[in-house]
Amino acid sequence: MAACYETRHARGDALPTHRHREAYAALVLDGSYEENSVDGPLPSRPGVLLLHPPYHAHGNRFERSGARVINLVLPALDGVAQAQARLVPDLREAIAIFRHAPQRFAQLRAASTPCEPPQVPAWQRAFVEALGAGDRPIADLAREFGVSAAHASRALSLSHGMSPQALRRELRWRRALALLATPAPLADVAADAGFADQSHLTRVVRAHAGLPPSALRRRIGGIKCVQYAAAAAALQ
């Protein structure tokens, strides 16, 4: 059975950027907070369901009233490649599913509706896309988007929880994860994801996943098998 646990956070608490190796869902019971990641800011208020793919890195700020959250570790989250915020139709029913019937989570997810994320300036979205598209110096990118490098760093750290360089590393890591789901040779994965070489890829994969790339590739394959089995069971 999937692991379920509750967390409580006081007003003013902050969780720096951290990474969960398993896919998981977080359901906000009361209070509010903001989650920040390479995917941008996400709202978190009672009834909001936050979905996280495996190895997702994010930070949290509990500025106003603190929050109480129930979390559910999942074997997989089919179709979820980035963090998502969704609103459940009935909070009490959602709590019951988290605590007593996690096998019904797919139904809860299907019944939820997407939340509108907080707006960020258009230049920030374009800046993050440019970070993932190559290795141009941060100062050059900032100049292109009409801001200083210092302002870009402050603004992105606030909205996305990471500096531009950290965001670039996270985007590189995310691309490597996607490529590890393919049969491409590891040297090609490293080159296509923007790593200096295969050794660089191996160091980063070990740091983030606790596994060498070959073992992580097998684990990703196992996650896919779980997803396909879950999908087949839903059709029966």
Rank of each mutant, 00 (worst) to 15 (best):
V189G: 00
L49Q: 07
F105D: 13
Q165F: 10
H52I: 12
Y5E: 09
L108D: 06
A10F: 07
E129A: 14
F62Q: 01
A187T: 04
A122N: 04
F145W: 07
R136T: 09
I223S: 05
Q119M: 09
Q165R: 10
F145A: 06
R64I: 14
A81C: 12
Q165A: 13
T202D: 11
P213A: 04
L51G: 07
L167Y: 04
T182L: 04
S37V: 00
S157M: 10
R203E: 06
H56T: 10
P183M: 12
S148Y: 04
L74C: 02
Q165S: 15
A23V: 09
H20G: 08
H100L: 13
E63L: 14
L27T: 02
D135A: 10
I138F: 14
V226E: 14
L167G: 03
R92G: 09
A207N: 07
P118E: 02
P183V: 05
I223F: 06
Q82I: 13
D188P: 06
E144K: 02
S37M: 08
P164Y: 02
A193L: 00
W123M: 07
S37E: 15
E22F: 12
A83N: 03
A231Y: 07
V147H: 02
L177S: 00
G161M: 03
F98M: 05
P137R: 06
D188G: 08
Q119P: 14
L74N: 01
G222W: 08
A155R: 10
P114V: 01
A166P: 05
R86S: 13
G194H: 03
M162Y: 11
A126E: 12
E93P: 08
H18Y: 10
A209L: 03
A14F: 10
T182A: 04
V28H: 11
H160A: 08
G194Y: 01
Q103V: 15
Q227R: 10
A110V: 06
V120P: 11
L29A: 09
Q236G: 15
